[in-house]
Design a protein around this nucleic acid. Structure first.
Length: 420
RNA sequence: GCGGCCGUAGCUCAGGCUGGUUAGAGCACCUGGUUGUGGUCCAGGAUGUCGCCGGUUCGAAUCCGGUCGGUCGCCCCA
């Protein structure tokens, strides 16, 4: 540890001007979400570890080995949130939002912009701390909610200039007539062709058969190409639900591909699963992903409370998309010569700021030349120059930094002149 | 947790294979030319634990080992 001032592995500082893009992109997201009726919610950065163990699922990779878990001074096991859905559901249950302050709102619609933490090996588009924006709609099973959530995500990505494809699937619900029955069939199939799988995938096939579809091994892909598909084994209700979601997407003209091999890693997902993938991200192709989690509330000990939502990594959106914004322009820079002028100029700086302008002044005791240079560096449109000559006439010299043209302006008229 | 590649000024990089005087360039930065004027130009200037630790050697940025960090991929995910 030779360097004390070095960010921990997998974390990074977002510096200007990139920090400006981050901020504005998050603002764009939250604005769009708000227009669709999703209200901002802030949950703690950490939760009781059990919220994730039970909500996300102890078998999942995320909970298994990727959580930042610590014991606080009171002996409680706490975990920095690795994802946004379980904490939001926990908050909805704790405050009984569906009956309390948001009574009558069915579903309860919430959105967030928050840091997530996962102890993973860093890679392109993947960090141990990253920021997500996301929405959750809790309290309705209607396929219209699914379609709305997906469409809100699609609109956001479009606005952020991300070129992506939408993959959608249904993974059914936990019942022998649906996912459980299918899993049995899939297991039997994998057992039958076990010898054809690479060792790594054999283990996976047993532990989490659905995930075998994700393998990038050619041999495995060949086996999975002929495997039974969940889409063909959904119960009538789940199949109908998926069909209705797709019809609504068609209604909006949102292109999507049925992807029977799309599976999600977190245990709480039921029925609709979807993700938007981009080719611009290397191995981390998912830029926005989500799905329905009708069983989550009960896993947390709550009543039956269906929901659906998505999470979207804004670091990835920035990497994959074309979203860009310019930093706010500087309107004026107050240049002063001499002590009296410095005092008067300092006051003018704040008078102009109070009037709504972006105004800078020297904070380093520079001479006029240094101040002019600083003014140019700041991109200020105007230099407001004040020296003894100006003070004597109760005016300033206003210099147009673009053309170099200068004109005298009375102190009281500066704000008005800047406005033109 | 596993594997490939990489670590030289604030930034982008040369030098390294074939160890040897004060380790370079461009950009950025500072000063002066212009004692009240930037962006151009000219002249000058400052800047590096050559990632870190150890080994080989008379001598290491250069060779070797380890380590830390970055990057890309596996796993998994936003």
């Amino acid at each position: 540890m030779p360097e004390l001032y070095k960010a921990p592995i997998g974390t990074r500082d977002v510096l200007p001007p990139e920090s400006w893009r981050h901020r504005e992109l998050a603002r764009l997201a939250l604005d769009q979400f708000a227009r669709a009726g999703y209200l901002p919610i802030e949950t703690p950065m950490f939760e009781h570890t059990e919220v994730f163990e039970r909500g996300v699922g102890e078998a999942s990779e995320v909970v298994n080995k990727e959580m930042y878990t610590f014991v606080d001074r009171g002996g409680r096991s706490l975990t920095l949130r690795p994802e946004g859905t379980a904490p939001v559901m926990r908050a909805v249950l704790e405050h009984m939002l569906q009956r309390g302050s948001l009574a009558g709102a069915v579903p309860v619609k919430l959105c967030y912009h928050a840091a997530m933490f996962r102890y993973e090996r860093p890679q392109k588009g993947r960090f141990r701390q990253h920021t997500q924006v996301g929405i959750e709609a809790i309290g309705s099973e209607s396929p219209v909610v699914d379609a709305e959530v997906i469409a809100v995500g699609q609109r956001f990505l479009a606005a952020a200039g991300v070129d992506s494809r939408l993959l959608i699937n249904s993974i059914g619900h936990l019942d022998p007539s649906c996912r459980l029955g299918y899993l049995e069939e899939l297991r039997a199939y994998l057992q039958e062709r076990r010898d054809e799988l690479p060792p790594q995938d054999r283990e996976r096939a047993e532990r989490n058969p659905l995930r075998t579809f994700d393998s990038k091994e050619d041999a495995t892909a060949a086996v999975m190409a002929e495997a039974p598909l969940i889409t063909d084994h959904l119960c009538d209700a789940c199949a109908k639900h998926l069909g209705e979601v797709r019809a609504l997407l068609d209604e909006l003209g949102i292109a999507h591909e049925l992807s029977p091999r799309l599976v999600r890693g977190l245990d709480y997902y039921t029925r609709t699963a979807f993700e938007f993938v981009s080719d611009a991200l290397g191995a981390q192709s998912t830029v926005l992903g989500g799905g329905r989690y009708d069983g989550l509330s009960e896993l947390l000990g709550g009543p039956r409370l269906p929901g659906i939502g998505f999470g979207c990594g804004i670091d990835r959106v920035l990497l994959a998309g074309t979203f860009d914004v310019s930093p706010p322009p500087t309107d004026a820079y107050v240049v002063t010569i001499g002590e009296r002028a410095t005092q008067r100029g300092f006051r003018l700086t704040f008078e102009l700021r109070d009037a709504g302008f972006a105004v800078l002044c020297d904070l380093a005791g520079r001479g006029i030349k240094g101040q002019m240079k600083d003014a140019a560096r700041s991109g200020a449109r105007w230099a407001v120059i004040i020296g003894d000559d100006e003070l004597g006439r109760d005016e300033v010299t206003l210099r147009d930094m673009g053309t170099g043209h200068e004109e005298p302006v009375a102190f009281g008229d500066v704000a008005g002149r800047l406005r033109t």
